[in-house]
């Protein structure tokens, strides 16, 4: 093909090509691999967010659809899923009315939770009181990925305002943690409905005490002050108190969900 092959050295050509290949491998190891690992961990977290919403839907089936038992198999990758019994949880709720009713009658209402902690990133996803909440370890913010079903009903027929609060309590015989393929098995242990007929212009106050190591007060504030629930935050912090006025009827439904195993 080329008649004149002078000054063309096979050795130099080989060294040049080898150099290019080695530089390529070096660049991929230095920059490409960390990007790949980061991508993997964010995929794991996304998958887990989805899995937590699946568990939340299972809990909703237990509570709202008269299903006694549910199980779902899911993949917990890049982190650990743990179940915390209500007696060990550090966050709590308290409900009070201006008529003097309290729920629970004494002390705080502890709820228990399911928590996923990522190994590689700082994300923590918690299923607490029927809400899926995400936050970054070490920062104060938190966001609700899936909301519980509290609501305020304005009845146009009798002109009544009914405030419905759903409490989903998680109990577990022992503290459980798992990584990898898991089957979350749960059953509805107990339901408790309390109806309070309140005097006109009554106010209902919900107080949320956050766990200082896993603070979800921002997520709960955004949810409770959203148009769906329509409460207003009282000037007290912490603990955060929220108030709703002109409630004629307060309904509190407490469900106790037992996690049999993960």
């Amino acid at each position: 093909m080329i008649a004149d092959d002078r000054a063309v050295s096979e050795a130099i050509g080989f060294i040049l090509i080898l150099g290019l290949v080695l530089t390529g491998i070096g660049l991929v190891t230095l920059y490409g691999y960390p990007v790949l690992v980061k991508e993997q961990s964010s995929t794991d977290v996304k998958n887990m967010e989805r899995a937590m919403i699946v568990i939340q839907n299972d809990m909703k089936s237990l509570c709202f659809k008269n299903v006694p038992y549910k199980e779902s198999t899911l993949q917990v990758s890049g982190g650990t899923l743990e179940v915390i019994d209500f007696s060990e949880s550090k966050s709590s709720f308290k409900i009070k009315t201006t008529d003097g009713q309290r729920y629970p009658p004494s002390g705080q209402l502890k709820l228990g939770e399911l928590r996923y902690r990522s190994d590689r990133s700082t994300e923590v996803i918690t299923l607490e009181n029927g809400a899926v909440i995400t936050r970054q370890e070490g920062s104060t913010g938190s966001a609700m990925l899936a909301e519980p079903r509290w609501f305020c009903d304005d009845d146009p027929i009798k002109d009544d305002k009914t405030f419905v609060i759903y409490i989903m309590n998680v109990t577990a015989g022992e503290r459980m943690a798992k990584s990898g393929m898991t089957t979350v098995r749960m059953q509805l242990q107990e339901t408790n409905t309390t109806v309070h007929n309140l005097s006109p212009q009554s106010k209902v106050t919900v107080t949320y005490t956050a766990d200082t190591t896993n603070d979800h007060s921002v997520a709960w504030k955004n949810y409770l002050t959203s148009p769906m629930v329509d409460m207003t935050k009282k000037a007290s912090s912490p603990p955060d108190a929220y108030e709703i006025s002109d409630v004629d009827k307060l309904v509190i439904k407490e469900y106790r969900i037992e996690i049999l195993g993960i």
Binding site: N66, K158, T162, V195, K253
Partner: peptide, 15 residues
């Protein structure tokens, strides 16, 4: 009204 609330989780009212 009570059964709707207990079994169907619904606030109902009628006239």
């Amino acid at each position: 009204i009570a059964i709707s609330l207990e079994r169907k989780n619904a606030v109902v009212s009628f006239s």
